[in-house]
Amino acid sequence: MRKITLIAGARPNFMKIAPIIHAIQNAQDNGNDISYRLVHTGQHYDKKMSGDFFEQLNIPDPDVNLGAGGGSQSEQTASIMIGFEKELIANPADLVIVVGDVTSTMACAIVAQKLHIKVAHVEGGIRSNDWTMPEEINRLVTDAITNYFFTTSEIANENLRNSGVKEEQIFYVGNTMIDTLLKQRSRFAKPDIWDQLGLKEKEYMVMTLHRPANVDQEAQIKSLMDEIIVHSKDVPLVFPVHPRTAKILNNLKISHPRLHMVEPLGYLEFNYLVERSKAVITDSGGITEETTVMGIPCMTLRDNTERPETITEGTNELLGTDPKAIQPAMEKLFKGEWKTGGIPKLWDGKTAGRIVDIILDFKEL
C-alpha cells in the first residue's frame, strides 16, 4: 500500500490538491494499492472554507486540521512543524505531497525529510527571484529538500536544472490549478452582485490587490487606484476586497461611483465574474494562470512574476508597480489591441492523473 499524505494550508492549496485526490480515488477504483490522508495545517483561517467549500470541490473534509494559524511567520512555521511532526508519527506515510509556496509547504517538507519520508513538490521550480517575498523563500527552501518535482512549465524545469536538480527528479506534468478550473468551469455561479450592480458581459473589470507592497503603502495604493479609476473610461470596477485592504481604502476616502468594493467571493462566483469581464487587474499569481486559460486580458501590478509563461504565452502583462504604467495599458485594452495569447503546454485538465500515474511507477516507494 502506497500511503500518501497531502498538505494544504490555504484556500488556493485545496484547488491544487482536489484533482490529485480525484486521481488517487480513480486509481483506487482501478485496483491500485494507494491511499491518502488530507492534512489541513490551518495556516489560513477562512470563513468561506466551510463544508460547502469542500463540497464544491467534491473532496472530503480534511482528515485533520492542525490549527496552526495566527502569529508571526516564524511562530506559524514552528506551530505547523510541531503539529505535523505529531501527525506524521501517528500516521506514517511513504510520500508527503506539498503544493504551491505557502509557509505550510516549506514547514511540512522539512518535517517529512527529518522523519526520512520522501517529499514531492507540486509546482516545483517556479521562481520570482524576489527574496523580499516570503513565498520565494518558501519555494527555495522546499525545492532544496524535495525528492520529486512536478512542474508546470519548461521554465520551471530549467530553474531546477540550473540549481543542480537531476533530470530524473523532474516531471513536467502541467498545472493542477487548471485541472480544477476546467472541471468547475461549467459550474461557475452568478454572484448576487451581478444583478445588484447591473453588470453586463465584457463591460466591467475585476480587480484584486493584496500584496503589502501595493496595499500597505498609502501613497502607493492611492496613486494606483486614482490611475485605474481615471483611465478605465465608463467601465465599472468590481473589487472583491479583503477587510484589511478595505479599511485602508476607506481611511484614504477612496471611492467612486464606478468602484464597487464587495466582500470576497467564493471560487465559483469569482471565476464567473472573471470569465465574463473585459479585463482583470491584479497582483496575484494564480489568477494570472486562470485568466490565461480563459483568454481574459490581465494586468499584473508587480515588478516580477513567478509565472512568466502567463506573459510569454498567455494574456498577462507585467505592468510593474509604477502607477504611470496603467494609462498605456488601458489605452491598449480599449483600442482592442490586447494580445489574444494561448494556453501553455499540458494545461489541459489532466495533470493530476499524470502525477498519480508517475507515483504508482516509483520503485522506491
Score class of each variant (00 low, 15 high):
4 I>K: 12
15 M>S: 14
16 K>H: 02
26 N>P: 10
29 D>S: 15
30 N>W: 04
40 H>L: 09
41 T>V: 06
41 T>S: 12
43 Q>L: 07
45 Y>V: 07
49 M>H: 08
52 D>I: 06
55 E>L: 12
62 P>G: 03
63 D>P: 04
67 G>Y: 12
75 E>M: 14
78 A>N: 13
80 I>C: 11
88 L>W: 00
89 I>Y: 03
90 A>C: 07
90 A>Y: 02
91 N>C: 03
96 V>I: 04
97 I>Q: 03
100 G>K: 06
111 V>G: 10
138 N>K: 01
143 D>F: 00
145 I>V: 11
152 T>H: 04
162 N>R: 15
164 G>N: 09
165 V>A: 08
171 F>K: 11
173 V>I: 15
174 G>P: 12
177 M>H: 11
178 I>E: 03
182 L>I: 03
188 F>V: 07
195 D>I: 08
196 Q>C: 07
208 T>I: 10
211 R>W: 05
217 Q>P: 00
223 S>Q: 14
224 L>Q: 07
224 L>T: 13
238 V>C: 01
241 V>N: 10
255 S>A: 14
260 H>P: 02
261 M>K: 14
262 V>S: 00
271 N>T: 08
274 V>F: 05
288 T>L: 11
292 T>K: 03
296 I>H: 00
299 M>D: 00
315 T>C: 01
316 N>I: 03
317 E>V: 15
328 P>R: 01
328 P>D: 00
339 K>S: 06
340 T>N: 13
350 K>Q: 09
351 T>E: 01
353 G>D: 12
354 R>M: 01
357 D>F: 04
